[in-house]
Design a protein around this nucleic acid. Structure first.
Lengths: 224, 224
DNA sequence: CCGCATCCGTTTCGATACTG
DNA sequence: CAGTATCGAAACGGATGCGG
């Protein structure tokens, strides 16, 4: 394994050596969402081979981003989790996600969607500046069942949780539609007209939804 | 060129498809530092092959991060530069650089260093919160000559320029030493003791130098 | 010269099979 | 379940060539 991929004394090149290999960012995304076993990772990173996953985990452990922990004898399993160094990448991943959101639509045939990923995206793209004091329950219908998220605007910005308290409105849509509304690629009117979304409760909540989010600065200077 | 590298409806996966290939982050770094020609990029990205650089540039243009512009007939040359979408990645690259700074030291034999990279690193790692009102001129001695940077602390945080106004002190060191001091991996005392740094002017400036910078959150929650 | 396209040896990846 | 072994396919790195 060529450990020195670039020969440059530059912090960005160093970072690229650690997280710039295929699959690595997605492995970190999964571990950011919680500790996981080898086979959990394989299942969610649909398409990664066992040998590549093994190499990636070994490298991430070697660089100190990931630690392996063996559970107590009853469940003799190894789980991988982020170390402090790995968790320190979270702000970077959020920024990258916000920037990448512009490429999300259109969706592609047979693409996988996980509830976790949507929650991560909504959380990462929520505005940090004061947003309309709305509370919206999202009922997201994927291929494999449906799940709920709760989005709240306020003076402290937008927050996203999976606690299911009551809200002003419930918005029912599939993942592609939710992300289209969030990124602004799809207007509320168009989504309603095409029957891609249904609102229960205050219809104005849907109109306000896009204002709760923003994607990576197309011009506005983000704080940092 | 398999354009769909992952089959996941996730903004981070989309971003990884665009910037997650070998060399791409470093190409973006170079273009962030200014528009460049094909051969300029090849020269600075020591080791990249022409065919790979060509493919990367084509992909980046296809995705809208980079534009090619042909100069007027006298200098019939093509320069590549970042588009708004490409420049929108700047905050992400700064975050990633700050995180990667922890891996900078120790330097490796025969590693290349460019003045631009140091300037980028110092700018990216400068604290955003108020810092001591110091002004320090860095005289950095690389293999190929030396160059100067000016670091200023203040209520608005740390700023780094290449304008050579007078300062309280001049710090003379090689790039590895400067980065060691910046990341905190090398203490001012140790650097002085080993003769790796020389100070002209107020000696206290060197002691204050590390306080002007911070690298990617090992615990402190960065604003975003 | 500059911006590639082409050829070719080496490395990495992906799919499957196999082992403790 | 958690990986290692193997092997064909794809990507990469280096050299060369060619049109503008």
């Amino acid at each position: 394994m060529a450990d020195f991929r670039y020969s440059q004394f530059c912090a960005l090149a160093r970072a690229a050596e650690v997280v710039g290999e295929r699959w690595t960012l997605l492995i970190l995304r999964e571990l950011l969402l919680g500790a996981k076993r080898f086979s959990d990772l394989r299942e969610r990173l649909d398409g990664i081979s066992a040998s590549v996953l093994s190499k990636r985990l070994a490298r991430l452990q070697g660089r100190g981003l990931v630690t392996a922990r063996t559970l107590e004898p009853p469940l003799a399993a190894t789980v991988y989790e982020l170390s402090d160094t790995g968790r320190a990448l979270a702000p970077t991943l959020h920024h990258l996600l916000r920037w990448g959101a512009r490429f999300l639509r259109p969706g592609r045939p047979r693409e996988r969607v996980e509830a976790d990923w949507l929650r991560l995206a909504l959380a990462a793209c929520g505005r940090r500046t004061p947003t309309p004091a709305r509370s919206i329950l999202l009922r997201i219908r994927g291929q494999r069942g449906e799940f709920l998220l709760r989005v709240t605007g306020g003076a402290g910005g937008t927050t996203v949780t999976d606690r299911l308290e009551p809200a002003e409105a419930t918005v029912v849509a599939d993942p592609q539609t939710v992300m289209g509304l969030m990124t602004g690629a799809l207007s509320a009117q168009a989504a309603l007209r095409e029957g891609r979304v249904r609102v229960e409760g205050d219809p104005a909540a849907l109109e306000a939804f896009p204002a709760l989010f923003e994607i990576g600065g197309t011009g506005e200077s983000s704080p940092d």
